[in-house]
């Protein structure tokens, strides 16, 4: 479990850590964090509850329960990861468990932007490369890999795989702009100008 002092902050350039492979397409956010755990007014307790029902169902064999995956921080997934509900509780639960980056074949839209807004990069990898990557992490379970956002590579002891984080997202990560609030409020003048030209804010008189 991760402490709040280790949560992402500021510019994020590289993430180094063990990889955990979680197989399966279309893993939805209800599975990542079942709805009963959303009955809370803070995200604090979510780390323990990540994949709660899947883990019970797998009798301690779930990737998040296996000893060899302890302290893993780069999650490897298949297609359409994080589909369904927009609950930010899902990336929050993963982050609080210890995940700092996710590499997968594709991501659901809202999940992707929720991850970005808390400083967790979601990087795309090809179907061909993910097979080789999984082979290697199975062979060298304790190895630490490096996800380098600038060069868009996932680097292991033997290999380097191309990953893709779209430009705006990687810029936001590299500059710390993923924590968008202060950037957004600094544009007050432009926000006011925009508001002046929107008909429904001006009695439709524009």
């Amino acid at each position: 479990m991760s402490n709040s002092s280790d949560f992402p902050s500021g510019p994020i350039k590289k993430i180094k850590g063990k990889c955990i492979y979680l197989p399966g397409n279309d893993i939805d956010t209800d599975r990542i964090i079942p709805a009963r755990f959303l009955k809370c007014v803070s995200f604090e307790a979510l780390g323990n509850q990540v994949f709660a029902d899947d883990r019970i169902d797998s009798n301690q064999l779930h990737p998040f329960d296996r000893d060899e995956n302890k302290n893993g921080s780069i999650l490897i997934v298949d297609k359409n990861f994080g589909c369904g509900s927009s609950r930010e509780h899902a990336p929050q639960a993963l982050m609080r468990w210890g995940i700092r980056a996710i590499v997968g074949q594709s991501f659901a839209e809202i999940f992707y932007s929720n991850c970005l807004s808390i400083g967790i990069p979601c990087a795309l990898i090809s179907e061909f490369d993910i097979k080789l990557l999984i082979q290697e992490i199975n062979n060298f379970k304790q190895d630490q890999l490096t996800l380098d956002i600038n060069s868009q590579k996932l680097i292991s002891r033997k290999n380097s795989w191309s990953i893709n984080i779209e430009k705006a997202a990687s810029n936001m990560l590299l500059t710390g702009g993923w924590d968008a609030t202060s950037i957004l409020i600094s544009q007050k003048e432009k926000i006011n100008l925009t508001m002046q030209k929107i008909p429904y804010l001006n009695s439709f008189k524009i």
Partner: peptide, 11 residues
């Protein structure tokens, strides 16, 4: 998500 809810409230 919730971080964006915060951003919308603020800006």
């Amino acid at each position: 998500g919730t971080s964006q809810v915060r951003d919308v409230l603020a800006s």
